[in-house]
């Protein structure tokens, strides 16, 4: 049995560890908040529109993040759409209530699956690239080179990536929804489970403006949160090249956790309303 002195020492150590973790979390949150505020402030001033150097980076980022991801999104949407629609139609037929088709597609595919899958695909395709590119620039000291030319890091490096992630995330989410519903419906209608026109009517009946607004919100928020996390990690690399893979992993996993937690919070809030 340990004596009271040892017990007290153990408790003190645990309190120390807990306190240090809380301070660290608080510090990290404040850092992320400041970074996000400075990026948004640089971007929303809209001066970047008149700067060819920045618009060039914006176009390149949109191309890498959005255009090059399109084929992957279409392929994944096709696969997930066919599977989901087939199972939903099959389930609705088994309980002989075809009116459930629209409701289930709206609740599952539109509100939940599409924003999450698109964000996960964006993260796996571009997440590591964002952290690695920013980290390498820091290691090479290119941030000092930019500052010495009077170029704002937030405006030239960070804002284009945040904008591209958010904008492309939203567009790809809507693409995912259209492709998965249309192609999924077409495939299922070929197997004579349901007529394609009837299927579309059911989908239309089950989709309200509220669901489209939720899709819009999640399709914007999730890629944006992911981008903020990735940019934050990219800027933390400092001058150590061997920290690049560490922060790249942390960035992608942190983004995933952030998105899943946000999804849970949104579901909770929507249930409470």
């Amino acid at each position: 049995m340990s004596n009271p002195g040892q017990l007290l020492q153990q408790m003190n150590q645990r309190a120390d560890t807990l306190g240090a973790s809380v301070i660290h979390m608080f510090y990290e949150s404040r850092r992320a908040y400041r970074l996000t505020a400075s990026i948004l402030s640089a971007g929303l001033r809209l001066q970047w529109i008149t700067r060819p150097a920045v618009t060039n980076v914006v176009f390149r980022q949109i191309y890498f993040t959005g255009v090059q991801s399109m084929l992957w999104i279409v392929l994944v949407a096709f696969g997930i759409g066919a599977l989901s629609v087939y199972n939903i139609v099959d389930f609705a037929k088994s309980i002989q209530d075809m009116s459930l088709i629209g409701q289930l597609i709206s609740d599952l595919l539109v509100k939940e699956v599409a924003p999450l899958v698109v964000t996960i695909l964006l993260l796996s395709r571009s997440g590591v690239a964002v952290v690695t590119e920013l980290g390498t620039m820091h290691v090479r000291g290119e941030d000092l080179t930019l500052s010495s030319m009077g170029i704002s890091k937030e405006e030239y490096l960070l804002w284009p990536r945040l904008l591209a992630f958010t904008l492309c995330g939203l567009i790809l989410t809507f693409t995912f929804v259209f492709v998965s519903i249309w192609l999924g419906g077409l495939i299922v209608s070929m197997s004579y489970e349901i007529n394609f026109i009837d299927f579309l009517i059911e989908v239309r009946r089950g989709t309200s403006m509220e669901e489209i607004m939720i899709l819009l919100g999640k399709g914007t928020l999730y890629p944006m949160l992911s981008a903020v996390m990735l940019l934050n990690m990219g800027c933390k690399v400092g001058r150590e090249p061997n920290m690049i893979p560490v922060y790249a992993t942390q960035g992608v996993l942190g983004s995933l956790m952030l998105v899943i937690m946000s999804d849970a919070v949104i579901a909770l809030v929507l249930n409470l309303i």
Partner: peptide, 29 residues
């Protein structure tokens, strides 16, 4: 910064731009 020129050791270039873009970067920005 636009009125001060800089020549910093091993910090003259942005790696993912061409040399032309590097030279014109302050003007393009």
């Amino acid at each position: 910064s636009t009125r001060i020129g800089s020549m910093i050791r091993q910090r003259g270039l942005i790696a993912n731009l061409t040399l032309r873009e590097n030279l014109l970067l302050p003007f393009l920005y």
